[in-house]
Amino acid sequence: MKSVIPHAKRLIVKIGSSLLTDNGKGLDHAAIARWAAQIAQLRSLGKEIILVSSGAIAEGMLRLGFDKRPADIHKLQACAAVGQMGLIQIYESSFRAYHIHTAQVLLTHADLSDRERYLNARSTLLELLHMGVIPIINENDTVVTDEIQFGDNDTLGALVANLVEAHALIILTDQEGLFNADPRKNPEAELIRYARAGDPELEKMAGGAGSEIGRGGMLTKVLAAKRAARSGAHTVIAWGKLENVLVRLAAGEMIGSQLEAPSGHLQAKKQWMIDHLQTAGKVFLDTGAVQKVLKDGKSLLPIGVTEIRGDFRRGEVIACFDESGREIARGLSNYSSSDAQRILRHNSSEIADILGYHGAPELIHRDNLVLL
């Protein structure tokens, strides 16, 4: 088995908090300098690199005098705001030694949920890569609340991989890779060298949360690989403290766990829809509608919808569920939630009489529908 990294031109490299900090003592300047040196070597091989970096909260904790991670969300936000300054300062000075420019990009999942902002973010990142700049991405922890609690930069790395159609996502962590059991509890646990991203068995094997500094466990990495695979990106989960791990991966060495993507990938608009972590609303389908959507590849008609939840506008992404509550698809609604409520369980021929205008016959057209 060979590493997929040598043939991957555009890479997303995600580095976890434990690899950037000195056991809770703030950022490890020497470690960040080593990462910059390795990334500079990858750049010399013609690779485009986007860096997704944790570490802001850990640095902020040090600067503000916290000896353990605060539980209060506003204190976490304050740590993130203060620590982000130090994080970017160190990256900038480290890459300057190799005459490489860097750019700070702070994102939230809301930025990637809005189609216009999604396209703007994509255009900016691609232009930065074209100019030879290394974007350094972090979640905008000062304005979000739910993501800080889960240490979600693994998912952010996958979202960025989809955003710029990267060839591979490298997740560097404090574990050697994915094991078939928790190696901290089971000495017989075996490292999984190769698997298909999205294999349900991988999620069963993944453990719980990580260290006290970061909150991302192995499960978030497995789910990130599954998400990245939808746009055709392979994922490698590797031990970040292995000497020259990035350079060795680029040279073809099999390190850690390689989770390969299927050969195909979703078209850009459908990938954008599936990347929504939160949808604007929910619709529940009867058995007949589920059959037509999943098996026959048909559009979703109002007559097949039994229930509508949420407040959404025309053109927003909504989730489709079967009668058991399983999400089966997502799509762009042709109607607002208020209008959809009025036409559900009705034939398309009745829409004009009910609403007083001629709208689309479908609640979601099949061209705007993606199956899960």
Rank of each mutant, 00 (worst) to 15 (best):
M1K: 08
K2W: 07
L11I: 11
L11K: 09
L11Y: 09
V13F: 10
K14E: 10
S17H: 04
T21E: 07
T21W: 08
D22V: 02
G26I: 08
D28M: 04
A36P: 05
A40L: 08
A40V: 07
R43H: 13
S44R: 15
L45R: 15
L45K: 15
K47L: 03
I50M: 12
V52Y: 05
V52G: 03
I57W: 00
R63S: 10
D67H: 12
D67N: 13
P70V: 02
A71H: 08
A71S: 12
I73R: 00
I73P: 01
A78L: 13
A81N: 03
V82W: 01
M85Y: 10
G86K: 03
G86V: 00
L87F: 07
Q89V: 02
S94F: 03
A97L: 13
H99D: 14
V105D: 04
T108K: 02
H109Q: 14
A110G: 06
R117A: 12
Y118T: 06
T124R: 10
G132V: 11
I137R: 06
D141R: 04
D141L: 04
V144C: 14
I148S: 00
Q149R: 15
F150Y: 13
V160T: 06
L163S: 08
V164L: 09
V164H: 08
V164D: 07
D174I: 08
N186S: 13
E190R: 15
L191P: 06
R193S: 14
G198W: 08
L202S: 03
E203H: 04
E212T: 13
E212G: 15
I213Q: 05
G214I: 01
R215V: 04
G216R: 01
G217C: 11
K221A: 03
V222H: 10
L223E: 12
L223Q: 14
A224S: 15
K226R: 14
K226H: 11
A228H: 05
T235C: 08
W239P: 04
K241H: 13
E243W: 04
R248A: 02
L249M: 10
A250Y: 06
A251N: 14
E253H: 10
E253G: 08
E253W: 09
M254K: 14
G256V: 09
L266I: 12
K270Q: 14
Q271K: 10
M273K: 09
M273V: 09
I274C: 01
D275S: 15
H276K: 09
T279D: 12
V283A: 12
F284Q: 12
L285P: 00
Q291K: 13
Q291G: 05
S299P: 01
L301C: 02
L301K: 01
G304Q: 09
T306N: 14
T306F: 01
T306Q: 13
G310A: 05
A319F: 06
D322A: 09
E323P: 00
S324L: 10
R326N: 13
A329Y: 00
R330S: 06
G331K: 00
L332M: 05
S338K: 13
R342C: 05
R345C: 05
R345V: 01
N347T: 09
A352D: 14
I354R: 07
I354Q: 09
G359C: 13
L363T: 01
R366D: 06
L369F: 08
L369E: 04
L371I: 15
